[in-house]
Design a protein around this nucleic acid. Structure first.
Length: 418
DNA sequence: CTTAGGG
DNA sequence: CCCTAAG
């Protein structure tokens, strides 16, 4: 076998500086990583792919976080194919033949469902999943099916994500590897060449295998325009595809990414029980879709940030550094169709605000119910926020050297120099 | 296109 | 969240 694709693990002796890893860019990282990323990315649903990558990447990058067990293969993604196939299956059934399985659809669908876990949940996943998901994870699945979509991200939160230990193995090995020799054109070559194999190994159980592979083939090929951004970020504004549930939203604006959301499934059935409390992700669609504002329907109904999201945000910042919002978006919120880098940043901004506003009124508790922004935010988080903030301000200042123009107090924000 | 700021 | 100005 040729494992060139996955070498990443021990490779790239990146200084594992505890500090934020700010300079990460695909190009700057060992090629292997990228390649492997590409490889494992493409075939599967973004979520998973990313997550796995994250695992690898982080590991690779020597980013220190509590993901010790991460790469030890605590779980395998064998369920994935199943899910996938299942989804498709459902789909095709519902659509009853007739263009049921078009790349567009899949694409849109997956995108829509952004939180794959919904699928997981709905599927026999439960059965398939149970044995690979750490109880915590499973539990999570049941209770807070939300913030932590793929349940793989929570690996480094100081005070959070107790469930953080997940690994990837089987799957990544399986699908990741294949042929990488053709380092030149991973994209094309891979898409066509590998997709088949992959599916053979992964989708063996479903009969839709055939269409699926072709489908994936094309699916894979999309949106890998620039090498800089491993993932397309270019979605978001225009395509905040709304209908997670019903109707169709037409967005014919020309865009790089072809189909995205021409079609919107009606497969609500596929996404069963949401936890009303925690899953805030997609039910809002129900409320404001239907009319399909066609374009720029970036929900005015702001989605509330879940704790998990915040945690991810923080993790992101601690890993990539402040201001690396695109990266953070890509790695930690890749599957969040909403949450643009800007949003992320805004959230950070707010957190920061809340963070120290909360600190100021030293009367501590008394009543956490105050409607201050910090209301929902657990102290842990705020704490982390503060830490990150200060930590960062420091690193920033001595990175630029203290000899930064007389106005040492740049503005008054984060770079306060502590 | 990505960030920083302001609205 | 949205919009705009800078790089």
């Amino acid at each position: 076998m040729d494992w060139t694709g996955i070498v990443p693990f021990g490779m790239d002796p990146r200084p594992a500086s505890p500090g934020p890893f700010a300079g990460f860019k695909c190009d700057s990282v060992d090629e292997n990583v990228c390649r492997s990323v590409d490889n494992m990315m493409e075939p599967k649903h973004d979520n998973i792919a990313v997550d796995s990558f994250l695992g690898l990447g982080m590991e690779n990058m020597g980013i220190s976080s509590k993901m010790d067990e991460f790469s030890l293969g605590l779980i395998d993604f064998s369920f994935l194919p199943d899910v996938y196939g299942g989804v498709l299956d459902h789909w095709s059934k519902q659509q009853d033949g007739e263009a049921a399985l078009k790349p567009e659809i899949l694409d849109g669908f997956l995108d829509e469902v952004e939180e794959v876990e919904h699928i997981y949940a709905s599927h026999h996943l439960s059965s398939t999943a149970n044995h690979f998901l750490p109880e915590t994870q499973v539990k999570k699945e049941a209770s807070e099916v939300d913030g932590e979509p793929y349940g793989l991200m929570n690996f480094s939160s100081e005070s959070y994500s107790p469930s953080g230990s997940i690994g990837l193995s089987e799957w990544s090995k399986e699908t990741t590897v294949p042929h990488t020799e053709s380092s030149g054109n991973i994209k094309d070559g891979f898409a066509t060449t590998n997709s088949d194999e992959m599916h053979c190994s992964s989708y063996e159980s479903e009969d839709d295998r055939k269409p699926l592979s072709t489908l994936l083939g094309s699916w894979v090929g999309r949106g890998r325009s620039r090498s800089k951004n491993l993932f397309n970020t270019s979605r978001s504004r225009l395509d905040s595809h709304s209908g997670t549930k019903s109707s169709v939203s037409y967005d014919f604006r020309p865009r790089k990414e072809p189909l995205e959301n021409y079609i919107h499934h009606t497969a609500e059935n596929t996404l069963p029980s949401h936890d009303p409390i925690t899953s805030s992700e997609s039910e809002d669609d129900i409320s404001l879709t239907i009319k399909s504002k066609s374009r720029s329907d970036r929900r005015k109904h702001q989605r509330m940030w879940t704790i998990d999201e915040v945690v991810k945000l923080l993790d992101g910042i601690s890993h990539f550094g402040l201001g690396k919002w695109t990266d953070i978006k890509n790695f930690f919120f890749h599957s969040a169709s909403h949450r643009t880098p800007v949003d992320i940043r805004d959230k950070w901004r707010n957190l920061l605000k809340a963070s120290y506003s909360n600190k100021h009124n030293g009367d501590e508790e008394g009543e956490e119910k105050r409607r201050s922004a910090a209301r929902t935010i657990p102290k842990d988080i705020l704490h982390r926020v503060r830490e990150l903030a200060s930590l960062h301000s420091k690193s920033l200042s001595d990175f630029h050297g203290s000899s930064r123009s007389p106005s040492t107090s740049r503005k008054k924000k984060k770079k306060k120099k502590k």
